[in-house]
Design a protein around this nucleic acid. Structure first.
Lengths: 254, 254
DNA sequence: AGAATTAGTGTAAAAAGTACACTTTGTTAA
DNA sequence: TTAACAAAGTGTACTTTTTACACTAATTCT
């Protein structure tokens, strides 16, 4: 192969010009959702650094040179909560030229769904303090950078997603009651659902396993516990024509 | 304000450390869709540069320092077709560490919808040649980098989108027949639809204006021409509870 | 004038979505 | 022990949406 070195020369020359292209800092932001009894919550950090030091903001961090984007988003979560394997979804990339006061920073937004009972919060290099806020509180907070826009996009994406994918279970403990599940949907969709219609629909999908166990420690009739069956979902998903879909089950009372 | 300079010092120091973070080259790729009589087509370029010189690939380019992401995607399209105002949608960001052989390059994927009659193709700095390929051809082509994955994600996104947003009209000339519209949906959804059900559904949405004009130059009964009414759509969209939705209108013949 | 080609149209049956209220089962406190 | 409390659990009738399906109408071409 006598032209190998020639090819390498071309490559080297091109790599050089390639190196001359503008490069940008880039980050991931991770909107971490948890569900706590009745409320959908979001994890915010109190920033430990300028700009916007001491303000509540979305957790995020720079992406490392040899790190994939998903891994970076996972790392942000791990640093704050110690959780490693979680549901993670990329939402959109925000790159407005002046979105960061110190220079061009492009950020890839993710959301995560975690079981709120599992976590323990940590302060970290980027966060003086970490706390849960309800979705309503977050909306009213004046988040720095374009974080309000990022939050809105992620929440919206979650709402679309929960209707068409069985992702809600990521927010619940392994065993849950149908009422808890309904409350979760109501919190995310921000509307009341009809109890009987909701149960009819979710049970007819044949994705929940009745554990023949009752809720304990409540001062009223205990509810049955169910778990989600991911294998069953996978096999149904293979079938042509199966769609997870919680759209209607409406309730006239606004 | 005697502490201004102090603040600036802090900022300067922080900006300095900020500058030390790893920075990446980043690009946009733009999957340009057009609809040509019966087929959904995609615009590919023959690369004019290493790596993968002379191979067909998705059009893309580096994002400039002072350029927003959407603007960069628009510029790619403009360079290839001369079109400036088009429907553009961000899909997802691809940043696998080794997706580019010359170094870390993160790319934001977009798709565009254009009226195929409007364009004229240009070669450009990045493209020796530009040509339309049908979706099937693209799937069979062995696209370089992770372009096959990017294409699949964009096509999939378009399919989801066309069901729930009235974006199909971006691919058609201002005046079109119902049959053309149906063919467009069939091409994107990759399934046959029932003529009567399709018409019933689309007309019941009250988004099309009957132009009281007939198709010309066909060797059979001419069809009526319609146009899409974007203002009507906007006002319906404001109304609680209106959803554009072309889901079913199925046809048993597979 | 007849053949060819696509446009255009309605109805009935099935499936899905919606509204709605009372009984059951357990705990707690009198 | 019993009554009050609280949430669990359950079925049906009505409405709306979806689906399947086949013939007639309008135009051009030969």
């Amino acid at each position: 192969m006598e032209n190998t070195s020639k090819t390498l020369d071309i490559k080297k020359a091109t790599v050089k010009s390639f190196d001359n292209f503008f490069k940008s800092a880039f980050t991931v932001d991770n909107i971490i959702f948890g569900f706590d009894e009745a409320d959908l919550k979001v994890l915010l950090i109190k920033r430990g650094e300028v700009p916007f030091e001491n303000q509540w903001a979305l957790p995020g961090n720079f992406v490392h040179q040899h790190e994939n984007l998903d891994a970076a988003a996972g790392r942000v979560l791990d640093e704050l909560t110690g959780l490693k394997k979680v549901y993670l979804e990329q939402v959109r990339t925000f790159g407005r030229v002046n979105r960061h006061p110190f220079g061009r920073v492009i950020t890839v937004a993710y959301y995560s769904l975690i079981k709120i009972s599992d976590y323990r919060l940590h302060a970290s290099s980027i966060a003086q303090e970490v706390a849960w806020f309800s979705v309503e509180e977050v909306k009213e907070l004046n988040l720095p950078f374009d974080h309000a826009e990022i939050f809105a996009a992620c929440f919206n994406q979650l709402r679309l997603n929960i209707k068409r994918q069985p992702v809600g279970f990521e927010l619940l403990p392994p065993k849950f009651t149908l009422t808890k599940l309904q409350h979760l949907y109501e919190a995310i969709l921000e509307e009341k659902l009809d109890k009987r219609n909701f149960r009819k629909k979710i049970l007819s999908m044949d994705l929940l396993i009745d554990l023949n166990e009752l809720q304990a420690g409540v001062a009223h009739r205990p509810a049955k516990l169910f778990k989600f069956d991911p294998d069953r979902y996978k096999s149904l998903y293979e079938e042509e024509g199966f769609h997870f879909d919680i759209s209607p089950t409406k309730n006239k009372k606004k």
